[in-house]
């Protein structure tokens, strides 16, 4: 049996449309539960902040109860509470913060406000063990597209190397899915539609693909796909959905993986961690594996259920902070929708 001594950390995540609760002890997931309001947003074609905030209130107690039940724990067993303080949707973050403060207050345990992006990196330690001294992280989801250099996760020493200048990578998937008549969120249906499609059928633009920065741009790509599809429709020709999906996905995976590997080489770092919902994309994984292997970079991608937003990632980072002796957050901790890197939430 695994050694499971150490503090039991409860993690709460509400930065977007997932109410995530996780329990971590000694680098191990001991319980988790997730409620999602994604179905309520589907008909709007994107996350509606007020709908998400209402759903978090409704889901919170049941999700916490389910995570505790999965761990065979009671509230009194919790030794610390960690919560996402930002970045994310302001109204949604506030619900998680209020809940986390109440649990910390009621249980008389320390509270750790954590950075959501750093938590996406921290979660990988639950699957692949401690991170090396330094690594580069590529975080790609419907809400973020960031390339970070990670020096000390627990102490919040992260530097942003680049990020998207317009749409997040996941947003591009959502918008292109709409153009192709596929459901929201767009990632999984585009991945499914692309099977058997030719990734070289159309060469869509790689936004900022050849510039010297580590920034990304996906709005031009989305428009290019829409133009191409409309031209076909105008000509009265059928739209080859599999080929378009595969070609679009190729453009996204190509630019993301290429820049991430160059960032590792530039920083002289031998490890790349990929997190966020888009990390579950099959083509991105394959392309990143090939390019990392060629560049001698170790690639770490947590399993898909840990890549998407969840409470375990928050608990994982909270546990790292507690272990590192980081000062807990005060009860007047603010939500910070645009929480910057390079500093822990205070």
């Amino acid at each position: 049996m695994r050694d499971v001594t150490g503090p039991l950390v409860l993690g709460i995540e509400t930065s977007c449309d997932e109410t995530g609760v996780g329990l971590v002890r000694a680098g191990t997931v001991v319980g988790q539960a997730l409620a999602s309001s994604v179905d309520e947003h589907a008909r709007f074609g994107g996350v509606v902040p007020e709908v998400a905030a209402r759903a978090h209130v409704e889901a919170m107690p049941g999700t916490v109860a389910a995570a505790l039940a999965a761990a065979g724990a009671s509230p009194a067993d919790v030794d610390a509470v960690a919560v996402t303080a930002g970045p994310g949707l302001a109204g949604a973050l506030l619900v998680g913060l209020a809940a986390a403060k109440a649990y910390a207050l009621a249980l008389d345990v320390p509270l750790f406000g954590v950075n959501h992006l750093a938590a996406h990196v921290a979660v990988d330690t639950l699957e692949h063990g401690p991170l090396p001294e330094q690594c580069v992280a590529l975080l790609v989801s419907g809400g973020h597209t960031s390339l970070l250099r990670v020096d000390d996760l627990a102490r919040g020493e992260l530097a942003r190397l680049g990020s998207t200048v317009d749409d997040a990578a996941g947003e591009a998937f959502d918008k292109v899915a709409r153009v192709l008549g596929l459901p929201f969120p767009g990632g999984p249906p585009i991945d499914a539609a692309a099977v058997g499609g030719d990734p070289a059928y159309v060469h869509f633009p790689r936004g900022k693909g050849s510039d010297a920065t580590f920034d990304f741009s996906f709005s031009g790509l989305k428009t290019a796909v829409a133009r191409w599809v409309e031209a076909r429709e105008r000509a009265g020709e059928p739209v080859p959905v599999a080929h378009v999906a595969a070609s679009f996905r190729e453009a996204v995976a190509d630019v993301l993986s290429a820049k991430a590997v160059v960032a590792c080489q530039d920083a002289g770092v031998g490890t790349l961690v990929i997190g966020g919902g888009v990390a579950a994309n099959a083509r991105l994984r394959t392309l990143a594996e090939q390019r990392c292997e060629r560049a001698g970079v170790t690639l770490r991608v947590p399993r898909p259920s840990l890549c998407t937003d969840n409470g375990v990632m928050v608990a994982a980072l909270g546990a790292m902070q507690a272990a590192a002796g980081v000062t807990p957050s005060p009860l007047d901790l603010s939500a910070d929708p645009g929480l910057p890197l390079g500093g822990r939430a205070a």
């Binding site: 905030a53 107690p61 109204g91 619900v95 209020a98 809940a99 403060k101 109440a102 649990y103 009621a106």
Partner: peptide, 20 residues
């Protein structure tokens, strides 16, 4: 107003749950 209201309701709910 929704945002402030939610803070109170979710706080009360979580307190009740944690304290049983």
């Amino acid at each position: 107003p929704f945002t402030g209201l939610r803070v109170g309701v979710v706080t009360a709910t979580a307190l009740g749950q944690a304290l049983g």
